Simulated scan of single mutants.
Amino acid sequence: MTVNQQYALDAYRAAQRGETAGPAPGLHDWSAVRELRDYQRFAAVLAGRPAHGRIRAALARRFSGRAAGC
């Protein structure tokens, strides 16, 4: 059973009982991703690391030596 089928079944059951259905699957995915990113930035600042550009700097360090050898 897919997520959408399960949601449809749950919404039907909730309607039969007179209850409100839960949120649709995927409705809050982007807000969860943003909250995770904000938390990681906050934790980085508390640890004394820079909050912005960490991924770009890590990739530059990792692949800087390989670009010249290609």
Rank of each mutant, 00 (worst) to 15 (best):
T2L: 07
T2R: 10
T2V: 02
V3G: 00
V3A: 08
V3K: 03
N4I: 06
Q5L: 06
Q5T: 01
Q5C: 03
Q6R: 13
L9R: 14
A11G: 04
A11D: 04
Y12D: 14
Y12R: 11
R13P: 03
A14M: 09
Q16L: 15
R17V: 02
R17L: 13
G18I: 01
G18S: 10
G18A: 04
E19N: 12
T20F: 12
T20N: 11
A21N: 06
G22F: 13
G22T: 12
G22V: 14
G22K: 12
P23E: 13
A24E: 14
P25S: 02
G26L: 04
L27E: 14
L27Q: 14
L27A: 10
L27H: 00
D29W: 01
W30D: 15
W30H: 09
W30T: 02
W30G: 06
S31E: 15
S31V: 06
V33Y: 07
V33C: 06
V33L: 14
V33I: 08
R34N: 08
R34Q: 13
E35S: 10
L36I: 08
L36V: 08
R37D: 10
D38N: 12
D38K: 03
Y39R: 12
Q40F: 01
Q40D: 12
Q40I: 01
R41M: 07
R41I: 00
R41N: 06
F42T: 07
F42N: 07
F42L: 07
F42I: 03
A43S: 12
A43D: 13
A43W: 05
A44L: 04
V45D: 07
V45M: 08
L46H: 03
A47C: 08
G48H: 09
R49G: 01
P50S: 03
P50V: 01
H52L: 07
G53T: 05
G53I: 03
G53D: 08
G53K: 07
R56Q: 15
A57M: 09
A58Q: 15
A58L: 11
A58N: 10
A60L: 13
A60K: 10
R61L: 11
R62G: 04
F63R: 10
S64I: 05
S64H: 15
S64A: 15
G65A: 14
G65D: 12
R66P: 02
A67Q: 15
A68R: 14
A68N: 05
A68T: 12
G69I: 01
G69W: 07
G69N: 07
